[in-house]
Design a binder for these strands. Structure first.
Lengths: 214, 214
DNA sequence: CCTACCGATCGGTAGG
DNA sequence: CCTACCGATCGGTAGG
């Protein structure tokens, strides 16, 4: 048995580099992270890192592409699992929210990428994500005919805003929660339910029962 | 008459530095902007810049504080101008949206600051903005009693999410609009109205008339 | 994947 | 507000 640090087989160098780079870029930004820091985190020398990625820019693009690819892989499954109707909607929105909540760095990474590299993210959104959001907005428009969905919804714009809202809310959640009133300093639990409510009430037609209550 | 570039009296050096720094930080981020670039933009040497601000970090903090101060100055006026009811609400939300739309860099700067310096922004939000958002959510809660506001609204969380949503939407608007279907490449007009609709329908109680239509 | 090394630029200081 | 200059670090290359 060889005398290396670990007995468990490691993932490939590229994967290990991407893992650490994603993490560091999300927390400190692309410009706020040096190749040296990435190399240290991975446990190799800086020039070795540049053997796997031709430049820092190439590393950035790989990180972003990988993120979108992961999403592109997850989204069809979510859409397949949850179709029409309020219940299914809840599942889908919940899945979107959970996708980012379970790893808030994802949300911060996307937000940073959108600010630092708008053209690249635009291209990836268009190529990889738009087909799915079109499918979703078509489904919403069908829901209008059956009376479940509000007539005044702009389906495409609504989907866009919801994605932006969820990512933004998760990315800066720990900051904006400073606006909530609690005397105890830290970590007020994040008002997830209100976000779900905003999404739901802006999409579904009010029932007569609901209106009578008011 | 002296032989300088301009006859119009210039604002103080500090103001000119803050102007350019705000602009550059918003577009390229704090770590993506060098003191040299700021100095060039202002038209002075780098050490002169450091005479006015003790360090790059001090410059960053001044930029952020100035932004919040500007907001703190604007917000009371907005609140005074627009009180209760759907009309007044429209004014207020519109004013918030316009505040960032007229200068999208403001939105990008806040977003970047929240990502790069969460503790600082949290502190400033709490100290400078929270009193006003409390006032606003109290007003919303009063609207519940009169039946104008939905019973299920979590006023504080709603206000927080709306602020976060508006800033996020403006900051990354040019990117997320890539999800909209238009074949022509550039600048699909940003779906502002749908954002307003999301805000309104998630806040106001549905009228019986509205429900009958569905 | 490493050692050795590059020019350029970084934030910041000394001294006037 | 300037000139002159600092050590540290940046992304990246040569060569193995």
């Amino acid at each position: 048995m060889v005398d290396k640090r670990s007995a468990t087989p490691q993932p490939s160098a590229k994967v290990r580099i991407l893992d650490k780079a994603r993490q560091l870029f999300a927390e400190h930004g692309f410009d706020g992270t040096s190749l040296q820091q990435v190399a240290d985190a991975v446990g190799m020398r800086k020039p070795s890192l540049l053997y796997h990625f031709r430049s820092k820019e190439a590393l950035r693009e790989s990180v972003i592409e990988e993120l979108l690819a992961h999403w592109q892989e997850t989204l069809p499954r979510l859409l397949a699992e949850s179709r029409y109707g309020p219940d299914r909607f809840a599942n889908l929105f919940d899945a979107l929210l959970s996708f980012f909540e379970e790893e808030p760095r994802r949300a911060r990474l996307v937000t940073r990428a959108a600010l630092d590299h708008p053209e690249l993210v635009r291209r990836l959104l268009r190529e990889q994500l738009r087909p799915w959001t079109i499918l979703l907005s078509d489904t919403i428009n069908m829901g209008k005919a059956s009376g479940q969905i509000r007539e005044d919804v702009d389906a495409e714009a609504w989907v866009m805003h919801m994605i932006s809202m969820v990512i933004g809310a998760v990315a800066v959640g720990p900051v904006s929660s400073a606006l909530l009133t609690r005397e105890d300093e830290e970590a007020v639990d994040w008002p997830r339910e209100e976000l779900v409510r905003i999404a739901r009430t802006s999409l579904f037609a009010p029932t007569p029962l609901e209106a009578d209550d008011g």
